[in-house]
């Protein structure tokens, strides 16, 4: 699943593994016991049924053990989640604006782009805002997502460990081209990023054109229908 794009990915994947692991054991247990009973106590064998009305000890056990299990799940997921909400103070700040159907990223020096350019190993702080309907900023490779809603600024952060391009998707239904609102997070070496960041406004427009999200995905996903 491409673990390791950020530290947080490993946290989420380990919580996932923990919950799914316990779930698989429970599922197999329930299914196996059920099939065993159906075979063993089959009517064709002439088995006489016994009317067992219940057993409060058993009821207590199968409330208590799952309670403990789900509380550990809650705890691990809460600990993992805390990382996500522990916002960095010295990160690169980017204002993210969503619209039907594209993204704009605005940096502290006024640069505007359609892809999100960030340096590797450096915290990035996103301020999310929508100019129209609800959207959701989602980077599957980073396991992060936050809705983008008009009239309020939602926050999100990440620190990428690996240089590369990662998909940004819109995860909140927003109409006709919802499925075509893809963009990229472009994680760069710090030196490359600094060079890119220092470039003058003239190149900003150029960047804007070459990374237009709707156009760049048009090769794979053909927008159809009327706007």
């Amino acid at each position: 699943m491409g673990s390791g794009a950020t530290q947080y990915v490993e946290t989420v994947d380990s919580v996932m593994l923990y919950i799914v692991g316990i779930s698989v054991v429970l599922l197999i247990g329930i299914t196996a016991v059920m099939i065993y009973f159906v075979v063993k106590y089959n009517r064709k064998k002439g088995h006489k049924p016994e009317n067992i009305h219940g057993n409060w000890l058993l009821e207590t056990i199968w409330i208590a053990i799952p309670t403990v299990l789900v509380m550990t799940m809650f705890y691990y997921s809460y600990i993992g989640y805390k990382d996500l909400r522990n916002f960095p103070e010295d990160g690169l700040e980017v204002n993210v604006t969503a619209r039907m159907w594209g993204w704009t990223f605005e940096y502290e020096n006024g640069k505007q782009t359609d892809s999100l350019y960030v340096p590797v190993n450096q915290p990035v702080m996103l301020f999310l805002e929508s100019v129209d309907v609800n959207h959701s900023f989602y980077v599957p490779a980073f396991r992060i997502k936050e809705d983008v809603i008009a009239g309020r600024v939602n926050k999100l952060h990440f620190t990428s460990d690996m240089v590369g391009d990662y998909d940004i998707a819109c995860a909140e239904y927003c109409g006709l081209k919802h499925s075509m609102m893809y963009s990229k997070v472009k994680v760069m070496e710090v030196a490359d990023f600094d060079k890119w960041y220092a470039e003058t406004d003239a190149t900003t427009d150029e960047t804007n054109i070459e990374t237009n999200p709707v156009d760049s995905t048009a090769a794979e996903i053909k927008p159809t229908g009327e706007m």
Binding site: M73, F74, Y76, G80, Y81, S136, E146, A171, E172
Partner: peptide, 19 residues
């Protein structure tokens, strides 16, 4: 029901919500 636990859990739901 068991996959509901994955979605009730904050860390994993953030990733899986609306997928």
């Amino acid at each position: 029901g068991l996959t509901g636990l994955v979605l009730g859990s904050l860390a994993t739901d953030i990733h899986l919500h609306d997928t």
